[in-house]
Amino acid sequence: MTGKLTQVRGIGPVRRLQTQIEIQAPIDTVWESLTQAEHVAQWWTRGEIGATAGDAIVLDDGESLRGTILVMMKPYVFEFTWHVSLEHAAHPEWIEPVTRGLVRFDMIELGREATLLTMVQFAPATSAAGASAGWHELVERLQILCEGRDIEPSADRFEELKALYSE
């Protein structure tokens, strides 16, 4: 059983989620795995990801996410909103409306073959446990991909992590 990768902070209706993981791979490898759709399909889901700020990011035909890229500073910061319009969001309950579900990934080199990846998202308090588990599972898969190992399917992993974050 791994410890928690996601820290949850805040009071009231909004929580700050920060998921952090050290990946034994060069920063450019992590950047490509994070921003190129063919790689993202392996650790998250299929979709289309624009090349620059202002472009769209659409995952699962918009069923999961239909947002806008706000920052793309290779290889350090990749930031996008979860939805363009809350009204048309497939899962508005996942989204903190003020911040539009804004997701920020940032990366910093710890060495030539080591990168610290940090994800930050503000989320509704009511969905913080599920979101924490979801991000934990996703960055674990991203780590495995970047380190050249095989991602093994695990149907129970999300529920196991959700229980961990609900404690």
């Binding site: 700020a53 706000l70 920052v71 930031e79 003020v98 911040t99 539009r100 804004l102 503000f122």
Partner: peptide
């Protein structure tokens, strides 16, 4: 780059 009062400014 980011303007979402009162939470995020970038």
């Amino acid at each position: 780059k980011v303007w979402t009062p009162p939470h995020l400014l970038e």
